[in-house]
């Protein structure tokens, strides 16, 4: 193994395994402007939190749309179990009033019915079909 690779392994392990105080001191000795580093790090933290929140929200929306699509397809085909699940969800959803025939529910109305439910659980139950 080349010496350069050995050094690389050494600094990698220090970065991974040394306690935070040791890493902090070591970094402080390398950086010419610690204040600039801290400002940039803090700025990126805000960006990171925003990015992750946006991704999580997108994921929730994707799952919501997928579950709604499954129910919509089940209504069209008249598949027993999903239809029964949806009827139960409507019955337990006091905020939703069904003013039309069940079979004519739109995707938007289905979204309204399921949006506050445990979507992952619903998806798993639909997958059991």
């Amino acid at each position: 193994m080349k010496i350069k690779n050995i050094i690389n392994e050494g600094i990698k392990n220090f970065a991974l395994e040394a306690d935070d105080q040791a890493v902090k001191e070591a970094l402080g000795e390398l950086l010419p402007d610690m204040k600039a580093y801290e400002q940039k790090t803090e700025k990126f933290k805000k960006e990171l939190n925003f990015l992750m929140m946006a991704q999580d929200n997108q994921k929730k929306t994707d799952i919501l749309m997928e579950v709604a699509k499954r129910f919509e397809e089940a209504l069209l085909k008249g598949t027993e179990k999903p239809v029964a699940m949806l009827k139960q969800l409507i019955a337990s959803n006091q905020g939703f009033a069904l003013n039309k025939s069940f079979e004519n529910l739109t995707k938007e109305e289905i979204v309204e019915i399921i949006k506050d439910k445990n979507l992952v659980e619903l998806l798993n139950k639909l997958d059991e079909e």
Partner: peptide, 15 residues
């Protein structure tokens, strides 16, 4: 977060 950034930056600086 801050501990992570310190470790990653230290490694990259040395690399």
């Amino acid at each position: 977060y801050h501990q992570l950034m310190r470790r990653l930056t230290y490694y990259t600086e040395q690399r």
